[in-house]
Design a protein around this nucleic acid. Structure first.
Lengths: 204, 204
DNA sequence: GGATCAACTATACGGTTGTTCAACAAAGAG
DNA sequence: CTCTTTGTTGAACAACCGTATAGTTGATCC
């Protein structure tokens, strides 16, 4: 009976493995950032969202900068994992374009996070270095896919330069969708990319 | 003699007309933002940079949000004023492209400010409304210039759609230059724009 | 030369920031 | 069972945030 009279167990806190908790904190940080940009990327808001005490961010990430880097990594992973394996007869470039404008990637929340991260990259040397490393692999992937199509169509192009331009266009289309979604739906954005690429490398 | 013994006049402050002071505060805010993004867009830093007391921002702009709007307006003006009148026989589109990638516009400092402003636009409804209004006129200008070339070359295109895509590409190229200037110099950026446009509307 | 007005300073205010730290709780090892 | 480890709390900290406000300075007008 004495046990029954005790206040509800109400586990004062739930224990998690470090990787689980980190993932949860990153998710909470993403939610905050999607809603309010860098202004909502604060210890208080993120911990409240995650339902944990304020000390945990420092414990798991060392600092807010560490969490920011983790958030960037998570966004990058989500973007690259959106690309499935190409079906037989389907070009890898086509798959990439689908991935760029998939609903899970090309939506206002996610793009607000990207815009916020870019703003930080421009100002934070550490984050910028991490970005460049990721970007190099990203560029290679796109260049390879472009080269594949160009070769199949017997076109001669500079795959890297065209890949860089394509990525810039994708980024710019994302900004536009973020600021005014109706003016740049995913369908239109993808079509714009094709209109850039097809004259250079042929149909795909 | 008593006058000579006084501490140097050292005008405790210099007086300006309201528009002059506002311009100076906007310039200081731009400098801060270019260096440290939204984190350096603070009363303390801006007023220190401008060499005035902390009260002046509220006095002249009502709030930091007011100053932010003024900064946005200043950036927009600077961008549009970079376009000179077309020389005889020169297309307006060519002039626009020159303006987009002029050194005063296409440089890391200015683009850091833009990136920061976009991050705020994505999150600040007031600023977003102002941006859309500006953007509409901007879009019209580009569409008109595109249509001019297309008509001269006997091409049929959707000028507005192509203008929107072009602007997105310009923005994306700007991000890239901001994050890694060497990888996207103005020359290359301009060439990328032409590579998008020429297949659609012909040479200009 | 005194009144008026706007530009400006300087301080104070409550609230929020990121980080530190000692104490605590739960799980696993021996 | 005890000991160790580690995820977690919660409070404390100094620093900084934006805004409000009372008072000072300098130019302008009559």
């Amino acid at each position: 009976m004495s046990e029954a009279d005790l206040p509800p167990p109400a586990a004062r806190f739930t224990r998690m493995s470090a990787p689980e908790r980190r993932a949860e904190l990153v998710a909470a940080a993403l939610a905050c950032m999607a809603r309010g940009g860098i202004q909502d990327f604060t210890v208080d808001r993120i911990c409240a969202k995650a339902g944990v005490s304020r000390g945990l961010i420092t414990h798991h990430f060392g600092s807010m900068n560490g969490l920011l880097a983790a958030v960037y990594g998570a966004m990058y992973s989500a973007a690259t994992e959106a690309a499935r394996a190409p079906a037989p007869g389907e070009s890898r470039l086509s798959v990439l374009l689908d991935a760029f404008f998939a609903p899970a990637v090309f939506n206002r929340s996610a793009l607000t996070v990207w815009l916020t991260l870019w703003g930080q990259i421009a100002v934070n040397a550490e984050l910028r270095a991490a970005h460049r490393a990721h970007y190099a692999r990203y560029l290679d992937d796109v260049a390879l896919a472009i080269n594949e199509v160009a070769a199949a169509n017997g076109r001669v192009v500079d795959p890297e330069a065209l890949a860089r331009t394509t990525i810039c266009l994708v980024d710019g289309l994302g900004i536009q969708h973020c600021v005014d979604p109706a003016s740049m739906p995913a369908r239109r954005a993808k079509a714009a990319c094709r209109r850039l690429l097809v004259p250079q490398i042929g149909r795909f």
